[in-house]
Design a binder for these strands. Structure first.
Lengths: 299, 299
DNA sequence: GGTGCTCATACGATCAACGTATAGCAATCT
DNA sequence: AGATTGCTATACGTTGATCGTATGAGCACC
């Protein structure tokens, strides 16, 4: 019974059901009928001898077994894609890439890399989700996760893209206004997630110096901090790439050229598995190349 | 057209064809008809848009694309098995495990581990191939490769099972016969693949001493060397596990207790991939456990 | 040159998966 | 509370893809 389904298709509809949290929704996505989806799910469960999805009339939830399968299914489907891609002579990529990136980086720096990539590959769609909270990689259907700082999930493959240099910047007006004042006593603009009221900077030799500051403004949004700094409200620690043009035209200046904040690693995480679809692989390379140019360690 | 085949089944028949080097042979194995196999292969080639197997009337050869696919296909099929196994509540393993082992180890030490495993799991079949020559892992359909010395293929996952201690042994008669003679001048029985006419031994401090010997016998078979040593023909370097019982009952004795040959690593290699069938995983564990008991570093 | 094997193609037959239609059910709306 | 809407599971007839059998063609070995 039901031994004639395409097993990969079964996994495909299962993943779709899990993502849409609905059988009929998945059917619409897949361009088929709801009974067909229902049958396929039943067939998969029969083959594995496990209930994957607990379904009430209005609700659909994955069982622990289903959750476990979800990651495996996604990986296998990716590998099949990779097999297909591998034998394509023309390198016209297609399909969709799902990326999760931190908001700040995702709406400014990396989006440029992504748009370049889409221009180069017209048939590629990118799902570009910007989120700062920790993600559960196994549950989200994500091909590529950009993250600042370490990646907590050790089932993922991690590639370090860069370690961004961070420096203290402010306007000349602001500095003139507080001339002669200790760095610690300056009006600081701090970024929530990475700094508290204690700021640590390193001199050329790498020895740390901590400053206990009372921030004039604290924000969880780097653009807000950036704007405030440009308005001359205070000084802030900013990544060099973020303020590179401002440093060039003098809008902002390097307040403490001999002091630097700790470099923040920017990582790229991928689901494990030996092969990935060509579009994912090439996208990662493109991001990496972009970082090598725009986030180079000595830039 | 032909979009209704089970893609994994397609891969399955492809692998079978590649292994049997024949369409009709694969058909016999799979319990189906030859035209069906022919159609499935054609369907797979159509889907990938590549010729996988060049077939004449009497000969069947894989194209480079086909060879490339072979490894990927095997991995994917293994992962599907793993998915199935993972959800089996009963831990009754089944299926067949293909193992390639060196002749000497495979016919004596490891075979015991394998038979134990088969007793524990009645529905598991083991293909037990003993070969000393280098194998092309990608081409052979092998789940688990036991090997002495390093594994040349870096696409494989390698686990070191043990580093076997090797010592110089001989009979008391043989020693008495050549009493007072230099170790170098003794009648040596050497094992081709690992020793030439220059033998290197290490003292307790680990400093090497080389001996230029003229072997009384050289063989590529450790059992031949072993028998010759037991007959008192000469002295030989033997792994401790191989002669453990002889050392206990005095049939052979440790000729140079302060000298040891270099420990030989025994490795277990697996095809890469994130998940393997439960039977493979458990077999590897069983082998590992067996080695920990019978090949422990200090034994 | 015959024989034995190979793989590819042609042709009905079968049967599994499809879509449509229906029943049952829960939550939300009126 | 009753009506409505959306959901999933089952029943049923149909379709069409895959199947096995039969056949054709080609190479190798005797």
């Amino acid at each position: 019974m039901s031994t004639r389904f395409d097993r990969l298709a079964l996994l495909e509809t299962f993943v779709r059901i899990a993502e849409r949290q609905s059988l009929s929704g998945a059917a619409r996505d897949l361009g088929t009928s709801q009974p067909s989806v229902s049958r396929q799910l039943a067939a998969l469960e029969n083959r594995l001898g496990v209930v994957l999805i607990r379904r009430t009339t209005h609700d659909v939830t994955l069982t622990p077994d289903g959750l476990e399968l979800l990651a495996d299914a996604r990986r296998m489907l990716g590998e099949w894609e990779a097999i297909k891609d591998r034998h394509r002579k023309d390198d016209a990529l297609m399909g969709t890439i799902r990326v999760i990136a931190p908001v700040a980086l995702g709406q400014s720096l990396f989006i440029k890399s992504a748009t370049h990539f889409m221009k180069d590959h017209p048939d590629v769609t990118i799902d570009w989700w910007l989120r700062d909270d920790a993600i559960r990689f196994a549950e989200e259907g994500c091909d590529c996760w950009l993250k600042i700082g370490s990646v907590p999930d050790d089932t993922l493959i991690v590639r370090e893209l860069a370690r961004v240099e961070r420096l203290v910047v402010g306007t000349t007006e602001c500095l003139a206004q507080h001339a002669g004042i200790d760095l610690e006593a300056m009006p600081w603009l701090t970024l929530g997630p990475f700094e508290g009221n204690r700021i640590e900077l390193f001199d050329e030799s790498g020895t740390p110096k901590t400053f206990a500051v009372t921030p004039k403004m604290a924000s969880d949004n780097i653009f807000a901090v950036y704007e405030a700094a440009k308005q001359g409200v205070g000084i802030a620690i900013m990544p060099r790439w973020f303020v590179a043009s401002d440093l060039e035209d003098g809008t902002l200046i390097d307040v403490a050229p001999n002091l630097r904040a700790a470099r923040l690693p920017v990582n790229l995480a991928l689901a494990s598995g030996t092969r990935r679809p060509a579009r994912v692989e090439q996208f990662c390379e493109a991001v990496q190349d972009y970082c090598d140019v725009h986030l180079r360690v000595d830039a």
